[in-house]
Design a protein around this nucleic acid. Structure first.
Lengths: 348, 348
DNA sequence: TGGTGCGATTGGAACGTTCAAGGGGGATCC
DNA sequence: GGATCCCCCTTGAACGTTCCAATCGCACCA
């Protein structure tokens, strides 16, 4: 049963808020007993506990975080670096992930602190926060760059969990959670094969993107399994709408694919552009599948089929790993891999 | 000149981080002098300052936030409640605003703390954070509901700045920043008039939405100014893609408008759906303008013209107001109203 | 009756910082 | 030469909590 909403606090305006000592005096016990009532109620005799609880409610007492943080050397905050916004793309994972993370963190007794840091200041930004005990740990999201931060944080013994596996350093031992993009794309490709498509093209990212290559492997695997041709049906470009548009045009001219599987919704939108330019209708003449299930995919006519990452579950796993990390002694968890799903819409 | 990236901290793993006292001893001064070196350098003699700075750099000292917060009764954190995600809409202001806010706050020495709270727990969520000195102030974003929170926070003397004017309580004296939606829509309508359109339809929100009615007034004003008919050209619906689609279909049948101005990108996308269903081409046969300049507007073919809120500037104004509020004595600012711009794309 | 053990509670100290007040020393003035 | 001032720096205390060791009260047992 949830505690009812606390009645109006009896604290007069401007007066200092009540402290442990105030509650202790009112309840006729010591400071420490009040502290125990809040943090380890099972240590108190039931009648004492009730007396203290009563005093707490009467005074409207709330523990002072700063004092608690100072004494316990913890902030109960999780740091998350906000990566720069990219306008003109369809990337929408941040928003959904952020909500899930904040929600899950709250249930674990943590809040999320946002910060920004770029270029030279990148690592300094992390360092400053952890050194000043502003945060207990970090969630690192942009591991696709070859995670220099992850390696550095690990070397500095800064607690963190990565969203994204350590692509370039299989020897890394830090905690991470990731989504199996290859499986997601395989799901998408199977979906198109199931609809009778045989010439299915892949539009992905540059070859040095590990994530891009991983997703591509899902397409290649399924094509191979069904004995379908892949040569001339794949290309790798920048992650922009324009690149997707051009790639689609080139592929249509060269190989006349009837379906496109893309490494991102941004690229898939590019394909839609080309289709509408040529008077082709997505979902009727040509099938298109994107990746990330962004808002764009959800609303663009006729609806873009897209691979959806289980971000809510990712957040749960990340927070679980964080809790383990911050336990004493720390509980190290291996990496966690989750499977995406396919959101089917009109474009296929 | 930016300080160079600090060299590897000399703190051995597991050792407690250096404190003011450590720095003081090394520099041969007192604790307070080190504190002054950090917070009020102008109080020190130049040579002393340099000596202390040197010791700080050598030890890799970073002030402990918890201790500072405890002593100064401030957290240097700004609380922001994350409003629930709405899937299937094109609302994208949160993301852009969040980035701007975090960035601007950082420059002012603040970090942003995210939290969630719903229903019964809504006010309790705010209260708990401020009572426990977890945050110094709040940014309140969802004032469109008739801001019960704003009134409550003001009554509680909790420092906050609202993004959104106090629609229902003109007597409110709290700080706020808002964007003039009516002017934005007027801009959009003028744009269509300038392109020769005469039958311009409005698709807005339900009449009880103050924001919706404000935006609508911009359309009505411009239509009236140019002596254009408005009867039969307006409708009010829910903010969903489906509603926009149906509204557009009904309006096309009844009044054959050649242009649509919408209260949101979500509704405008709905219009695009109807157009493509009827074989009409947006931007050629019918012009469409949305509101919010979301990612969707930016990438959907052929590009959706949209009213763009100056969120970066909003963040700056909000942080400025917050700084004033947290000054001693507090500096109260009146409300600030900003003008949006129009991002013109292929749909018009 | 006095020792033992155990659960419940207490009091002092500490976390690292800043505030408020005080002190040393040189320059200036009478 | 001493009073006065000001600049620069130091000292002790305080912020509100939790850790740690100690104490109290009580039941149990010899």
């Amino acid at each position: 049963m949830a505690r009812p909403v606390r009645s109006l606090p009896p604290v007069p305006v401007g007066a200092p808020p009540p402290t442990l000592a105030d509650v202790a005096e009112r309840a006729g016990v010591s400071r420490q007993t009040v502290s125990n009532a809040v943090n380890n109620p099972e240590l108190l005799r039931p009648d004492t506990l009730e007396r203290v609880q009563h005093a707490i409610d009467e005074l409207g007492y709330t523990p002072n975080r700063a004092a608690r943080n100072l004494r316990t050397r913890a902030s109960h905050l999780i740091g998350l670096r906000l990566t720069p916004v990219q306008e003109g793309t369809a990337n929408a994972t941040v928003d959904r992930f952020l909500h899930s993370l904040v929600e899950t963190s709250r249930e674990a007794g943590y809040h999320v602190l946002l910060f920004t840091a770029d270029g030279d200041q990148l690592l300094t930004g992390y360092e400053e926060l952890v050194r000043s005990t502003a945060v207990d740990a970090f969630v690192v999201t942009d591991t696709f760059l070859g995670n220099p931060q992850a390696a550095w944080l690990e070397a500095q013994h800064v607690p963190f969990v990565a969203f994204g596996r350590p692509w370039d350093s299989p020897e890394a031992t830090h905690a991470w959670v990731d989504v199996d993009g290859g499986t997601g794309v395989a799901l998408a490709t199977e979906h198109l094969v199931g609809r009778g498509h045989e010439r299915i093209a892949w539009i992905g990212w540059r070859k040095d993107s590990r994530i891009g290559e991983d997703r591509r492997s899902g397409w290649a695997r399924v094509m191979y399994r069904h004995g379908l041709r892949t040569t001339g049906l794949a290309c790798r470009v920048e992650d922009t709408v324009g690149s997707g548009r051009e790639a689609a045009a080139a592929l249509l001219d060269a190989a006349a694919p009837t379906g496109f599987v893309c490494a991102s919704d941004t690229l898939a939108i590019g394909v839609l552009h080309t289709l509408s330019e040529r008077g082709l209708v997505a979902g009727r003449d040509v099938a298109v599948v994107g990746f990330d299930d962004s808002q764009v995919a959800q609303v663009v006519p006729p609806g873009l089929t897209s691979v959806r990452q289980p971000l809510e579950q990712v957040a749960v796993e990340i927070v679980t790993a964080l809790e383990g990390l911050l336990d004493t002694p720390p509980v190290r968890r291996p990496g966690v891999m989750l499977d995406p799903t396919l959101a089917v819409r009109g474009s296929s």
